[in-house]
Amino acid sequence: MTPFVQARGIGKSFGGLKALDGVDLDIHQGEVLALLGDNGAGKSTFVKILAGAQPQSRGEIRIEGRPVAFASPHDAARAGIATIYQELALSENLNVVENVFLGREVVRRVLGFPWLRRRAMRQRVDTLLRELDAHIPDPLARVGGMSGGQRQAVAIARALDQGGRLVIMDEPTAALAVAETRKVLKLVRQLAARNCAVILISHNIGDVFEVADRMAVFRRGRKIAERQRAATTPDEIVALITGAHPDARTADLAA
């Protein structure tokens, strides 16, 4: 089976600085892939390129085998790539339904004007939240009054409704309490169970080992290692991230 996304030789330069260099990575549907690495290792840059927020300087991205070029996050969204941003994605004064459908409202045209179809949107959100087993009692409540975990659930429902087949989550559990973190990790597995591909950026090795099927370690703009969860240990991953691992040293020398 062709991977959903194939990244080949992806590079990104900012002036003289090589933020990303020759990254090859496959992303499969139904799989949670964790990107790990120190700050500035290039994982966020890589994800931004995938999400269409920045164009790559070099290399090619293929979706289901076909090369694509994203000019904007909109292009990426159309190709089925949904990104969940940490802070900026939700409007606090709008309710759950309005947030899920923000920018893509379901409308009925009467006299040439688009009127909101509030009941249809409401029903769709009810279904999504039930499927995700998200604990949001009232979809008409404002998002501003919700916990971090509930907000993540809203963002995930939004990504799913957009037809997201690859969901990118950047530090979804940062700043969450323990119980909330559990819920979000469960949601991540739910996504994979629905045959979505999930990319998870996280600094929390414990979280990563709990949900990820595969891990890719970035260091100084390169992907220096890729491991199946079953075939590695937290110690090895930490060693790769910090540069203590022999593979990391080899990569450092080659750079």
């Binding site: 409007s91 309005e98 923000l102």
Partner: peptide, 24 residues
């Protein structure tokens, strides 16, 4: 209250960056 335009106006005031990212 009833049109897409109205919802988007509220969304811009609530969080303009979030609104922009959703393609509004």
């Amino acid at each position: 209250s009833r049109t897409v335009y109205g919802r988007h106006i509220v969304a811009i005031g609530a969080n303009s960056e979030a609104a922009r990212r959703t393609g509004i």
